[in-house]
């Protein structure tokens, strides 16, 4: 099947919606790619696919080749700069209009998830990240079932579980952790997203959705806490408009100074920057945080394999 040449499969899960599963998937993919790995993203959020938007490839279409569907390339491998290739598959690429609702009941969603797992020609991949919708229902059950049946032993590395700090979110995410226990999916770790917001004016950090809930939850369930990721409006701007992130001098995020002296150099920021998303992401404050998270994930994944 189409996953045969994929080395590791990592799921990105959360019981709660809007906590940043897709943006965490995006950043994990970019970081893995920056480390030189070849990466694929499979978006199985059928009724609300976000991956095409986050990579700015909403108008792309999937092409049919002998033997299956060809995923949409984001960028090719560049061995000179040590960047690995990145490609995506999402239901968003199959829609006629971007605003069209996909009104499907369970059986149809199940069939689509199976097709995504069997009919996409990924080729050789180091990592396949699977972005999921919120909940513990049809898509998740089908995913777990199909992987259990079809994946090679050791291929499914496990799940990165995303939460936000507040109790209302962790309450749902705990259900997802129990889902992983019941379906035998290994939990690689928990990422706490939207953990604090640094005011761009005074650099004061406010815990918009409180703080620390993810770490406490990880302890409670005896799983690794991979790190907390603050809200960075510059990242939102980067994916929404393609603007390269710049920070005022003195901005500190997770104890690191990310401010740049060029912040006042307006002309650089205003000119349309045509470089690749992966290149611009290097300037984002979150890139450093994700480098650490990614290293932990890679270590956990390769630790299992040996």
């Amino acid at each position: 099947m189409s996953l045969d040449k994929v080395k590791h499969i990592v799921l990105v899960l959360s019981g709660k919606g809007g906590v940043g599963k897709s943006s965490i998937t995006t950043q994990l993919a970019l970081s893995l790619s920056l480390e030189g790995h070849s990466v694929g993203i499979l978006d199985i959020d059928l009724t609300g696919p976000s991956i095409p938007r986050l990579f700015g490839i909403e108008s792309a279409k999937v092409t049919q080749a002998p033997g299956g569907w060809v995923p949409v390339p984001v960028h090719a491998a560049n061995p000179a700069s040590g960047v690995g290739s990145l490609s995506c598959m999402s239901l968003g690429f199959l829609l006629r209009e971007r605003g069209d609702a996909v009104v499907w009941r369970g059986p149809k969603k199940t069939a689509m998830v199976r097709q995504f797992l069997t009919d996409v020609l990924w080729g050789e991949l180091d990592y396949l990240l699977i972005d999921t919708p919120p909940g513990t229902s049809d898509e998740h059950i089908s995913l777990a079932e199909t992987l259990l049946k079809n994946a090679l032993p050791g291929q499914v590395a496990g799940a990165v579980v995303v939460t936000t700090p507040q109790a209302v979110a962790t309450a749902d995410v705990k259900k997802e952790l129990n889902f992983c226990v019941k379906t035998g999916i290994n939990v690689i770790g928990v990422v706490e997203n939207m953990s604090g917001f640094v005011c761009p004016n005074c650099s004061e950090c406010t815990n918009v959705f409180s703080k620390g809930g993810g770490e406490v939850m990880a302890q409670e369930f005896g799983v690794k806490f991979l790190g907390s990721v603050p809200i960075d409006p510059q990242f939102v701007m980067l994916v929404e408009t393609g603007k390269r992130p710049v920070y005022p001098v003195g901005t500190e995020i997770n104890g690191h100074d990310v401010g740049s002296a060029q912040a006042s150099d307006k002309s650089a920021a205003d000119t349309k920057d045509s470089s690749l998303l992966v290149e611009k992401y290097k300037d984002c404050s979150l890139c450093r945080i994700f480098r650490d998270i990614t290293r932990d994930v890679v270590a956990a994944v390769s630790g299992q394999a040996t």
Binding site: F197, C199, N201, C202, E204, T206, P233, V236, M237, T241
Partner: peptide, 17 residues
């Protein structure tokens, strides 16, 4: 929109691009 409790500056956390 979010008003910083420290400096009362309003920022758009989730920008309406």
């Amino acid at each position: 929109g979010f008003v910083c409790p420290n400096c009362k500056h309003e920022s758009q956390i989730f920008q309406a691009t």
